[in-house]
């Protein structure tokens, strides 16, 4: 474990001004991501969970370099993305790929699968001939479980699950080290979801990929990830190895999320904690701990200062000042 993590963010912030003043004056600011420091160790899967408005997708986009962070650093394999030279960036971009949520809008409807899969090769491996690109595309398609001859078809000829496989093939064709998967199974039916999750797991192990898996679905995260980070209103409130997080949650929000996830088996029925209200607006978050307005365990001190993400035990960090709580796990004892 002394290896340098592949991805490290330090106090990463992504703020969006709500409406710019005519002369660049400061309007209200949405703090979508507000100081996130996480590491993703090599060859491991980090699950990033949170509800809508938690900033998980914004964080993902910032890590991918799709937006310029307001503050903080993002380091890939020891290279600071903000300071990298353009040639370094070009090779970094090949090593980081992404799979999208919506299998319908993520493929260009006017391009055949061969063309879609060739685009990354054309720009990242310019030496490759046209026919070699096509061969690679067909190979990749088979790797994700679709027949190679489907290569000349168009996106509308495929189902949602098949398109998601094509999206995975596009990400993997340039042999990246890191994959960001943003809600990749949430648009799929249950039976197809399992197929795609299995494919992800298999490819991650075989190709030794490092992965950031963003989702709102705790069960999915529990299945696929090695580590889990829980986000609430732009901050990470808990970070732990998966088993640890599910069997020994240390943040009340994690506990609430775990208890709210419905389970079909009556034997697994947990005590339900129903939170009050909604996520507050990221425009004016509550003072101190941002979760305190909905937290069943909030005390006076919670409103005073923002709790730090503290290391409670090796591989387990939480941002809650109440160490005295014993929270309900999702797993049976």
């Amino acid at each position: 474990m002394n290896e340098l993590p592949l991805i490290q963010t330090a106090d990463l912030k992504q703020h969006f001004p709500l409406h710019k003043g005519l002369f660049g004056g400061q309007g209200p600011v949405i703090r979508a991501v507000d100081g996130v420091s996480i590491d993703i160790p090599r060859r491991s899967v980090l699950g990033l969970v949170g509800e809508s408005g938690s900033g998980k997708s914004t964080l993902g986009r910032a890590i991918m370099g799709l937006s310029r962070p307001t503050a903080g650093t993002m380091t890939f394999d020891g290279i600071d993305m903000a300071r990298a030279s353009s040639s370094e960036l070009k090779s970094l971009r090949r090593r980081m790929q992404m799979v999208f949520q919506d299998p319908f809008s993520s493929l260009n409807p006017r391009m055949s699968i061969a063309e879609t899969l060739s685009v990354p090769l054309r720009f990242h491996n310019p030496g490759l001939s046209r026919s070699r690109r096509k061969d690679r595309a067909a190979e990749m398609l088979e790797r994700v479980g679709l027949p190679g001859q489907y290569i000349s078809r168009f996106p509308h000829e495929f189902s949602g699950g098949q398109r998601q496989r094509i999206g995975i093939a596009r990400a993997l064709i340039v042999q990246p080290d890191f994959i960001m998967a943003d809600e990749v199974v949430s648009a799929l039916d249950v039976s197809v979801q399992a197929q795609v999750l299995n494919l992800f797991g298999r490819l991650q192990r075989d190709l030794e990929l490092t992965m950031l898996f963003i989702t709102h679905d705790l069960a999915v995260v529990g299945h696929i990830s090695d580590f889990v980070a829980v986000m609430y209103l732009g901050r990470v409130v808990e970070f732990a190895s998966t088993r640890e997080l599910f069997s020994n949650p240390r943040h009340p929000y994690t506990e609430a999320l775990l208890s709210a996830a419905p389970s079909p088996k009556s034997a697994n029925r947990r005590k339900r904690i129903v939170l009050k209200g909604d996520i507050p607006s990221p425009l004016n978050p509550p003072s101190g701990c941002q979760f305190r307005t909905r937290c069943p365990y909030a005390v006076e001190d919670c409103s005073h200062e923002v709790p730090k993400l503290r290391e409670l035990s090796p591989e387990h960090k939480a941002a809650c000042i109440r160490d005295d709580l014993s929270l309900a796990p999702a797993t049976q004892q």
């Binding site: 189902s159 699950g161 249950v190 039976s191 197809v192 979801q193 399992a194 197929q195 999750l197 299995n198 797991g201 298999r202 705790l218 069960a219 999915v220 995260v221 529990g222 299945h223 696929i224 990830s225 190895s241 998966t242 088993r243 640890e244 997080l245 599910f246 069997s247 775990l258 996830a261 389970s263 079909p264 088996k265 697994n268 999702a330 797993t331 049976q332």
Partner: peptide
């Protein structure tokens, strides 16, 4: 029901989910 991962076994690396093939 088997195709959905369970919270109770989270992090236990239980291998693949039992998916229903085809569509």
């Amino acid at each position: 029901m088997r195709a959905v991962p369970e919270l109770e076994t989270a992090g236990l690396n239980q291998g693949e989910l039992q998916s229903i093939e085809g569509f």
